[in-house]
Design a protein around this nucleic acid. Structure first.
Length: 703
DNA sequence: GATTGGGATTTCATTTGCTA
DNA sequence: TAGCAAATGAAATCCCAATC
């Protein structure tokens, strides 16, 4: 009789469990390969409506709960059945439903069939109750649940199945033990004669009571079940296999085992389905234009992986976005996200070839990056957006991360080691100190919300809510808020006053700076005026003392033709100045016109023109060349446009130039460029170069 | 603490494109 | 054209959080 169940098994030392499909055809495949027993429970049985539960296949014995009869060589067709009212059209089949099935389960002779034999001989498989747990099938409990019905009258809450091999030879030697498995010698089918089954649990076969319920197909039909029209993998889209009958091509590639089952493992698509689906199915195989990964591709991929150190799909999505942009820029084909991930993992798990193989740099680097990823995972970086699934709280982080992506996309990958590591996010609640009259909150200024067990979460929540609505706490909170408000107001007032004071201070600074500039300008004007005054006085003195020492070179300063002379020495000049100051009072030695002693060149143009107008002089329009010849050779010349000329057109020699020449013998001078201004040179060095004036027609360009 | 549902990941078989 | 690599789909497996 058929038996089908999806069983979750768990090895004693493993935390995780496995789900296996237990069938009558090949229970051996569900046994642990190492021979250890599996602690298992029935996770699922036949998929059918609750009102049509099968109950007969289950049996129970006192000390050895056997699985239903095992018929290794019986008819094929073990599998799940779908109810007749379930959709059977193509495309509507639930994915998890299996079909009956000659191809779905390994059969003797197939590659996946593993005949269970051991050193003691062939094994049959039975089941025995254990005390590890309960038969848990709560989701499928009900008045007609198969497990419940099969184990009525027995304490299933304390039993758990364990598959174990049963040595038939030992059973033959010990008949008492062989009661559990009473195999017929003529065939491998196990008799159920001695298995107590409540006859009420055996469903009546409907209208087909005459059918011989010998095979699963008949039983399924008798109990209102129809064979599923599809098999596993039937939803797979694609074209017909090239090596199918009718196909022109022959495919020898692939990983098909030589001892594979003669039947195709997966459903064969029909030609008409191809015609229907060809237009809407995605193209399989390598896309057009997608060549192999080049070194540049691998380099970029590894760069982005190193920069991201992905821990989940979100990280790979970011890597994909960056890689696509990079591919666009460099004219490389785009890759799917899955392709990039697969390629990277392929590099990581590349094994060392036989011989003295050299690890490729890309593989070496992939290993290093994988270590970084593992390290990152080990640090439990809570700020990683991979774990931030949502919420408003996480939205900011995600947004920041995306922004960072966008910015980093422009600049290329940034290695993780170079990036500033994000600080771990810890949710904290800062609370104002509560007045001490409430004992529970007096010390809670800074509380951290730490993850707690779910069982305590509700209690904590209730306690916190009750504390929040405590009147005392509310009064204290209001008082505290009022105090804070006053403090804030005062703070802002003081802050405003400070800003005003700073503004006034800045205004005062500007005023002081302006006044200081004006003071400097006034001092400069005063200095210039004093200098002009001294020069005028000196000129007046010289004019008195040297009126008789005219030199042809000397020109006259004013219309009175007072000759200007050169001082014989500085000392004499100074003494003469002092003498002049002493002997010539402004009243006793007054020039014909005080205005004529002013230096027109020191005046601005309007003043100068007023001066000319007042004194009746004409502006001298020509230029004069002043040549200074040095005893060592060479000369310095300069052009002076002296606008101060007398009424006869003679140029007026500025006393600042003419009167400052030293009269002492010249000293040897170094061969240096002549000073640009003779008076400056005389003032600095005290030399007495021969100065000469020469009337020269002015240049045409008036320069 | 055991159970369970479902997402994520891995493995396998197959198809398809590229290249020597 | 053979071999390789990428891509694809399905099944198997792993893993975790919610539930009991």
């Amino acid at each position: 009789m058929p038996f089908n169940a999806l069983i979750r098994t768990r090895q004693p030392n493993k935390k995780s469990s496995k789900r296996v499909l237990l069938t009558q055809d090949d229970p051996a495949r569900h046994a642990d390969k190492s021979g250890d027993n599996h602690h298992c429970h029935v996770e699922s049985t036949l998929r059918r409506p609750p009102s049509r539960q099968l109950s007969a296949p289950y049996a129970y014995h006192d000390d050895s709960l056997r699985l239903p009869p095992l018929n290794r060589h019986g008819p094929t067709g073990a599998g799940y059945y779908q109810p007749p009212d379930a959709p059977t059209a193509a495309g509507q089949q639930p994915q998890s439903q299996w079909a009956p099935t000659e191809h779905s389960f390994p059969m003797p002779g197939s590659s996946q069939y593993m005949p269970r034999t051991g050193p003691a001989g062939p094994f049959l498989y039975g089941a025995r109750p254990t005390q590890h747990g309960m038969v848990h099938d709560a989701t499928r409990h009900g008045p007609h649940a198969p497990i419940s019905e099969a184990f009525q009258g027995h304490n299933t809450n304390s039993s758990q199945f364990a598959l174990r091999p049963v040595d038939t030879r030992m059973q033959a030697a010990h008949p008492s033990a062989s009661q559990a498995v009473n195999a017929q010698p003529s065939s491998s089918r196990v008799r159920l004669d001695d298995i107590p089954i409540d006859p009420r649990l055996i469903p009546l076969p409907g209208h087909d009571g005459d059918k011989d319920l010998q095979d699963n197909n008949t039983i399924a039909e008798a109990t209102g079940h129809a064979a599923a029209a599809k098999v596993a993998g039937s939803r797979r889209k694609g074209k017909q296999r090239a090596d199918e009958p009718g196909s022109e091509r022959r495919v020898d590639k692939g990983k098909r085992h030589a001892d594979a089952a003669p039947q195709p493992r997966k459903r064969v698509r029909l030609d008409d389905e191809d015609q229907d689906d060809e237009q809407k199915t995605a193209k399989r195989g390598r896309p057009h234009g997608a060549g192999n990964y080049s070194q540049d591709d691998l380099g970029a991929l590894l760069d982005y992986v190193e920069g991201e150190l992905p821990l989940g799909q979100r990280g790979w999505e970011r890597i994909h976005r960056r890689f696509v942009k990079w591919a666009h820029r460099h004219g490389r084909p785009e890759r799917a996200l899955k392709s990039l991930e697969t390629k990277y993992k392929q590099l990581v798990k590349t094994k060392k070839p036989t011989g003295n193989g050299v690890c490729p740099p890309s593989v070496d680097r992939a290993h290093a990056i994988e270590d970084l990823i593992n390290d990152r995972a080990g640090t439990r970086d809570l700020a990683d957006s991979d774990f931030d699934d949502a919420g408003n709280a996480g939205g900011d982080i995600n947004e920041q991360s995306d922004n960072a992506d966008r910015s980093s996309d422009e600049d290329g990958p940034v290695p993780a080691l170079l990036r500033p590591r994000r600080a771990a996010v810890t949710a904290t609640v800062v609370r104002a100190p509560i007045p001490s009259h409430h004992p529970t909150e007096s010390s809670g200024q800074l509380q951290s919300i730490t993850p707690r067990h779910r069982a305590n979460a509700a209690t904590d929540l209730v306690s916190r809510i009750s504390q929040v609505f405590d009147p005392d706490i509310q009064v204290a909170r209001d008082t505290e808020r009022h105090s804070c408000s006053l403090q804030h107001t005062e703070f802002f007032s003081v802050h405003q006053q400070l800003r005003d004071a700073l503004a006034a201070n800045e205004s005062y600074r500007n005023t002081i700076s302006d006044l200081r500039d004006r003071l400097h300008a006034a001092e400069s004007a005063r200095d210039r005026a004093e200098m002009r005054l001294e020069i005028s006085q000196a000129t007046a003195g010289d004019h008195h003392g040297r009126s008789r020492e005219r030199s042809p070179r000397h020109h006259y300063f004013s219309s009175t033709r007072r000759p200007l002379h050169r001082s014989t020495s500085r000392h004499s000049r100074h003494s003469h100045h002092s003498h002049s100051r002493r002997s010539h009072s402004p009243r006793s030695h007054r020039p014909s016109s005080a205005l004529q002693h002013l230096d027109p060149m020191a005046l601005d143009t309007p003043t100068r023109r007023r001066l000319y107008k007042a004194t009746g002089r004409q502006e001298y329009k020509t230029k004069r060349r002043h040549i200074v010849r040095y005893p060592e050779g060479g000369e310095a010349s300069m052009w002076i446009t002296d606008e101060s000329a007398d009424e006869n057109g003679n140029p007026i020699i500025l006393p600042s130039v003419q009167d400052l020449w030293p009269s002492s013998p010249p000293r040897p001078m170094a061969a240096s460029p002549a000073p640009a201004r003779a008076d400056d040179a005389a003032l600095e060095d005290g030399d007495n170069p021969i100065s000469d004036w020469e009337m020269t027609p002015p240049p045409q360009d008036d320069t």
